[in-house]
């Protein structure tokens, strides 16, 4: 099937219920265009991480559909592994593999899943580490790295699969304040290079700066979508205003 209008991700009627009582998502529609940077903001518990985690089926939706590059995601589908290759994910808690070196963390999946040769994978890993400014840490183990360094390796690891979209789940929330900048710098470079990105974040200034569109969520629904200028300076919805006031943006 052909991709309609460059929509890389198409979410329709997405619902997610945890333990059959809590409604984490109650009917979400969202399209992500190719090359677009979309930030998802909102109070904690608003379902923004759940929405992001549904996009690559880390969380299996209770109802609704998600299309990625024209393919309908389904948990029964064996292709879910192949679709996930194309959707890089960066986690709040980094989730580097502690028993593998930085190099192995990056090359493992390209070698095993993409079947790259050791040489090809190593060359690519070196390029990526250079990009995130960690060439000197190639033989280090995760427990020898700072939080900011871990997250930069995690980004390099996700990029090694040559994804078409990168999903960031609060990538700086677990970092000490002085390390937030280095991670945001890598993400900024990635955005400028044209990567399609969906970012769940509490970094309002960053969201305002890099995003093409900002999604404001509350109580499991999308309240408002707009350009950063509109959302951050002139939001239409009362709930958006209240939230932004509380986090001191307006």
């Amino acid at each position: 099937m052909q991709m309609p209008n460059n929509k890389i991700i198409q979410i329709r009627g997405l619902k997610k219920t945890f333990k059959s009582t809590i409604h984490a998502l109650s009917g979400v529609d969202l399209d992500i265009q190719k090359g677009e940077v979309v930030s998802i903001i909102g109070p904690s518990g608003s379902g923004k991480s759940t929405l992001l985690r549904c996009m690559n089926f880390m969380e299996v939706p209770s109802a609704g559909s998600i299309m990625f590059e024209g393919n309908l995601l389904s948990i029964k589908d064996k292709n879910i592994n192949q679709l996930r290759e194309k959707m890089g994910m960066v986690f709040q808690s980094f989730n580097l593999f502690p028993h593998l070196s930085v190099l192995e963390n990056i090359t493992l999946s390209p070698r095993l899943v993409l079947k790259l040769s050791d040489d090809e994978a190593n060359i690519m890993a070196k390029e990526l580490l250079d990009k995130v400014g960690l060439s000197d840490k190639i033989d280090a183990y995760p427990n020898q790295l700072s939080g900011g360094q871990k997250q930069r390796v995690a980004i390099a690891r996700a990029l090694a699969m040559k994804p078409d979209v990168m999903l960031f789940d609060e990538p700086t929330s677990a970092l000490d304040p002085e390390m937030v900048g280095e991670v945001l710098a890598v993400m900024r470079a990635l955005a400028n290079a044209g990567m399609t990105m969906v970012i769940v974040t509490h970094e309002m200034a960053f969201a305002k700066e890099v995003s093409d569109r900002v999604v404001f969520m509350a109580e499991g629904s999308i309240v408002e979508i707009g350009t950063p200028e509109v959302i951050f300076t002139n939001p239409k919805e009362e709930r958006t205003k209240t939230f932004l006031k509380r986090v001191n943006v307006i």
Binding site: N56, M58, N81, Q82, R84, E85, M87, G88, M89, F91, S93, N95, L96, F97, L108, S109, L112, V113, L114, A154, R157, A158, M161
Partner: peptide, 18 residues
């Protein structure tokens, strides 16, 4: 073993058995 390890591996396209 932290669930995040499995999630990270699966997000990289690795199968459940891998």
């Amino acid at each position: 073993v932290d669930r995040g390890q499995t999630e990270a591996a699966r997000s990289l396209g690795m199968s459940a058995s891998l």
